[in-house]
Design a protein around this nucleic acid. Structure first.
Lengths: 110, 110
DNA sequence: ACAAGAATTCTTGTATTATCGAATTATGAG
DNA sequence: CTCATAATTCGATAATACAAGAATTCTTGT
């Protein structure tokens, strides 16, 4: 992943409401959630949620599709995995013994 | 990790210069690098580098110590691991089969 | 075609963050 | 003590992001 893409993804996640929305979408899985559903669950104005979801989409972390009159968002797991790998490389590079992320992940079998 | 801490860490990394500085610090390992060294390597004004390093430190991703007349920064691997686990939980929660980060990490034995 | 539902876009105001250079603090050398 | 070095802090300004509401687009049902 290129640096500028990573920066855009990171800054997309670096906001409370967007992080919360992203969480909901992760839990929802591939079937996703409509913009209005997310706004209601998080008690955020629909107009605000639109803005946040657009930011997440620019960051590549979610994708949208129209279903009838609703617009459904879902997580781009590929991109999220890419971001995690990017960060993990930076973290482990040269010092895998210090970071030890993989071991933790292995234990939890996440 | 609490949400607000994660947000602060993420927004600390969500900037090109800081991401580059963080990379250098990861490569440098526990012995770290002085503020001036980083500024020189990245061709960034010392005053700006100070600002960026302070931001990274507020985000908990690096720590600083004085060594003679230099101030040396090094990565907080604990915190970085914490951030990665936080993101991995969000990513995998409910859908480990889709994300598959751990498998990748396992293969690479990072 | 018309009305209502679901989202988004646009506009305006505010707040946070980035950038640059000058001034300031802390340290080591003579 | 005084000087030079290494960083940071402080000003001011510019750029970017956040927030709230009105107006607009797109879709479905009648």
């Amino acid at each position: 992943m290129r640096d500028d893409l990573a920066v855009e993804s990171l800054s997309a996640l670096a906001q409370e409401d967007r992080l919360a929305a992203f969480r909901l979408l992760v839990k929802a899985g591939p079937k996703g959630l409509a913009s209005g559903e997310i706004a209601e669950k998080l008690a955020i104005a629909p107009t605000r949620m639109s803005f946040h979801l657009a930011t997440l989409e620019r960051g590549g972390l979610v994708v949208s599709r129209r279903e009838g009159r609703r617009i459904v968002y879902s997580v781009s797991f590929d991109r999220m995995r890419g971001l995690l790998e990017f960060l993990t490389e930076d973290c482990c590079a040269g010092h895998p013994e210090i970071c030890g992320v993989s071991r933790r992940l292995n234990e939890e079998d996440c």
